[in-house]
Design a binder for these strands. Structure first.
Lengths: 342, 342
DNA sequence: GCCAATGTCGTAAACGTTTCCACTGGCTGG
DNA sequence: CCAGCCAGTGGAAACGTTTACGACATTGGC
């Protein structure tokens, strides 16, 4: 059956009665005599020849493969990124290698190091935390890397970041303007980059609006629907009239907890999330959410990477690392409609 | 920076003052004199050597890469599969190449043909339709393939299928037993395999329960949340007391349409879906759904593929194609609680 | 009819590994 | 002391391509 007897350039050469060089030339569209072309083409077709990509890669030092490493493929945010990345890399003729790091730093580092094995031409990395080891590995990476996430200055690597702080401000402002006064915050783990930034955004937004920061209105937990429900319960005694969540998953969990308690959303409590993932649309009521541009970030990252690959092919230089920031966008849905009191 | 000056086995040999053969042996843990091992190890470490996977692949004819091709990475069902597949392939030391075919048959065929370029050692294919061309391509595939989905007899390819018919029966039975009598069906496109089978399941289940088939209670549309909402609207005039949907996305859309009309779910109309995707849990009310075992199917497919790869390595024989079927499982949630009339 | 220019082709090297084979030297066992 | 063995080693071939180079044939202009 499909046991190793694949036709090679040699089989074709024999069958067509020419040299392997001629076969290669014909197959790559270089000049050749009419009947040579003809014979080679026919032999190739008859044998069902498919060029061996591995051999080709070895020869010209590129695999036409790109790697995307993200923490968890179950999270809709990363799915959106995968989708966006996939669409641009596919158009450019690259295959996409997927790597789920399960948010373990060691795994992220392994991926970075594995760039050296030349399996893929470049890497898009979406780290959940940035440690010193990360920075070290990034600066010594064996190939072009684009990071989705915030990076300290001085790391010679392209990056695409979200503006969580501005995003959080958008949500808080919206809740405040629609009449909410006791705006709670349901945050994620503070030792992750997004967790930290969204917390920061909440605080600054409160301050900017002259609202007091009330500890009892703040709770942190893991990202996840169930965690959201549980955490929301803990928030209720403080009597919030709105819950701003660091995540759509958390928001969804919170909304469910509220509904299960017989509270109305948004009648009694408004709920807003972040990421504007498919969950936000899927929820009932549909969730207001801050779109941090997952798709755009994915697309940008892929474009930066391709750009760098081009660049290397052309100049071989190492231009300045570039950073782009996706502007946040508030998507208002039913979950934060103004409370129309009975 | 990361320009091509990667150390190779040759650099190491020079630095350590041995032959490349010795380097290779040491690095692969073959026998060598103590100080040879020592010198090679040190040279490799100092140079930061990483073996070139492409060269290795060319030599021993395997890439340690597997491809998974599915219609749409945005669909939670496929995400679940990716996840399951990823976890078993990763454990076995294989990388995962992802391919989104956007449900276009031509693309699926291209993936099949591309098996010949030796980019990956095997393929898991999740086709949306099976045409004659598919069958032809499958029988002549250049490497091991596992299909997730139903395949006609006689195709020499392993497959993992879901039992949509039994699954649909489960749901209809459940709705009937909880007192529903006018059970509508919101189906997907009938020219796709799942669309067809789920329709079939609905009809057989009705018949088995002695329920009449009422055309006005049946509507077909594309898979997708919005399509579900629109289609549900068309169903309402017929006065259903339950809607069984071919898909969680459709079910979610239907539930939203009902709620938006002021109907109660499940009070007035029960809603059930299929796939038991994250959407079903995320929805409010949480959706009763038939779990068709996406994760299990993914896992099984991966295991079959790995198995076949092993097999080839060992015997080189082509044993019987195997087919496994994942049993459906009904997950009851709030959306189908018995109607407790006011 | 000669020379250069052009076009076509084959030989061979290269990409970075792994591995077969042959060679060396130091042992052991007789 | 020698035959035989073994571990350790290096040379070289192989995997399937692409491509530089040189050989040869054809052409055109004079």
């Amino acid at each position: 059956m499909w046991n190793g007897g694949q036709p090679t350039i040699v089989s074709i050469a024999e069958r067509a009665g020419v040299s392997i060089a001629s076969v290669s030339r014909v197959l790559n569209g270089q000049g050749a005599r009419r009947d040579t072309v003809e014979r080679v083409r026919r032999a190739a077709a008859e044998l069902g020849y498919v060029p061996n990509a591995v051999a080709r890669s070895l020869k010209d030092g590129r695999t036409r493969q790109l790697t995307f490493a993200m923490p968890d493929i179950g999270n809709p945010v990363y799915v959106a990124m995968v989708r966006a990345i996939q669409s641009v890399t596919k158009a450019a003729g690259y295959r996409l290698l997927l790597h789920s790091t399960d948010a373990v730093a060691e795994d992220e580092l392994a991926v970075l190091r594995s760039l050296g094995d030349r399996t893929s031409d470049g890497l898009i990395l979406c780290p959940i935390r940035i440690t010193g080891a990360h920075i070290d590995a990034l600066t010594h990476a064996a190939g072009p890397v684009v990071v989705i996430g915030s990076l300290p200055d001085g790391v010679p690597v392209d990056s695409v970041r979200a503006d969580s702080v501005a995003g959080a401000a958008l949500a808080v402002a919206h809740l405040h303007e629609t009449g909410r006064r006791r705006i709670a915050f349901l945050g994620g783990p503070r030792d992750t980059v997004p967790g930290h930034n969204r917390d920061l955004g909440y605080r600054t937004a409160l301050a900017a609006r002259g609202l007091p920061y009330d500890e009892r209105l703040v709770v942190h937990t893991d990202f996840g629907i169930d965690s959201g429900s549980a955490a929301a319960e803990r928030l209720l005694p403080a009597g919030p009239d709105a819950i701003f969540c660091a995540n759509d998953q958390l928001a969804l969990g919170a909304a469910h907890a509220l509904l299960a308690r017989g509270l109305r959303v948004p009648g009694d409590v408004a709920v807003a999330g972040m990421d504007n993932s498919t969950l936000a649309q899927a929820s009932w009521p549909p969730l207001t959410s801050v779109d941090l541009g997952s798709s755009e970030r994915g697309r940008h990252a892929a474009e930066l990477l391709l750009d760098r690959l081009e660049d290397r092919a052309v100049h071989g230089a190492f231009p300045e690392p570039r950073t782009t920031t996706a502007p946040p966008r508030l998507v208002v849905r039913a979950s934060t409609a103004p409370a129309t009191d009975p």
